[in-house]
C-alpha cells in the first residue's frame, strides 16, 4: 500500500507533464515550423481554380466518369468512391466471389469504353481498388490505353495527350524508390485548362 502511494505521484505527474510536452508543445512546434517552411503542403496541397474555388488536393484522387477525362482507379472509399472523409480499401480477399464479380464487370466496362480487344490484358491498377480509396495515380500503361478515347472526345492528338501525361507523371524517387504514377486529377485539370 505504501508502494502504491509512493509511485502514484510520479505516475500521475509524469502523465500530465508528458501530455503537455508531447501533445502540446511538440505538435505546436511542428505546426509552427511547417507553416513557415511548407505552408501549402501543411494545408493539404490544395488546388484552387481561377475563380478562387477550392477544387481538390493534388494528393487526393477524385472520381471521373466522362468520356473526355482520364479515369482513376476504382475506389472503395464511401458509398460512391473517393470519399476523402472515409478512406478505405475493399478488404476483399483473394477467393472472394464479390471481388471476382466486380473485376469481371470492371474489365468488361474498361474494354468497351476504351475499345480494347477481348484477348488483350488489362493493367491491374485500372480495375482494382486502391488501399486508401484515394489513390491519386494510375499506371502509365493504364493512361496510355485511355488516350484514344480522350483524344476523340476532346479532338486532340494522341501525341499531345502523351505529352500531358508525361508532364503529370510523378517519377519514382531518385529513379529508384517506388513506381512511376500518372496524377489523374492534375492531368484532367490540365485538359480543362487547355480547352479554355
Amino acid at each position: 500500500m505504501k508502494n502504491i502511494i509512493l509511485e502514484l505521484r510520479p505516475a500521475i505527474v509524469s502523465t500530465v507533464v508528458l501530455a503537455i510536452v508531447c501533445c502540446g508543445i511538440y505538435p505546436l512546434a511542428v505546426t509552427g515550423i511547417s507553416k513557415f517552411a511548407f505552408a501549402n503542403k501543411a494545408n493539404g496541397s490544395l488546388i484552387v481554380d481561377k475563380n478562387g474555388t477550392l477544387i481538390g488536393s493534388e494528393l487526393l484522387g477524385q472520381n471521373f466518369t466522362g468520356e473526355g477525362y482520364f479515369h482513376p482507379r476504382p475506389s472503395a472509399a464511401g458509398a460512391s468512391g473517393y470519399d476523402a472523409a472515409n478512406s478505405s480499401g475493399s478488404n476483399l480477399g483473394p477467393t472472394s466471389q464479390k471481388l471476382a464479380d466486380q473485376l469481371k464487370d470492371r474489365i468488361a466496362a474498361y474494354r468497351t469504353s476504351n475499345g480494347i480487344a477481348a484477348n488483350q490484358e488489362i493493367p491491374a491498377d485500372a480495375v482494382t481498388a486502391s488501399a486508401s480509396g484515394l489513390d491519386p495515380h494510375i499506371s502509365p500503361a493504364n493512361a496510355a490505353l485511355q488516350i484514344a478515347r480522350v483524344a476523340q472526345a476532346r479532338n486532340l492528338t494522341s501525341q499531345k495527350l502523351q505529352e500531358l501525361i508525361n508532364f503529370n507523371t510523378d517519377k519514382a524517387g531518385f529513379g529508384v524508390l517506388g513506381v512511376d504514377g500518372v496524377n489523374v486529377l492534375k492531368l484532367n485539370i490540365a485538359l480543362d485548362v487547355r480547352k479554355e
Binding site: 480499401g89 471476382a100 473485376l103 469481371k104 490484358e121 491491374a124 482494382t128 495515380h137 500503361a141
Partner: peptide, 30 residues
C-alpha cells in the same frame, strides 16, 4: 505472382496483385 483467378478474367499477369495497393508504392514496396 498475383492471383490466377483474377488473371483468368483478363488482368495482366505481369502486374501482380494490385487490389488494396497504391500505385506509387507498387507491389514491392507494399
Amino acid at each position: 505472382h498475383g492471383n490466377p483467378i483474377h488473371q483468368a478474367l483478363g488482368i495482366a499477369s505481369a502486374d501482380g496483385n494490385m487490389e488494396g495497393k497504391e500505385v506509387r508504392f507498387g507491389i514491392f514496396n507494399s
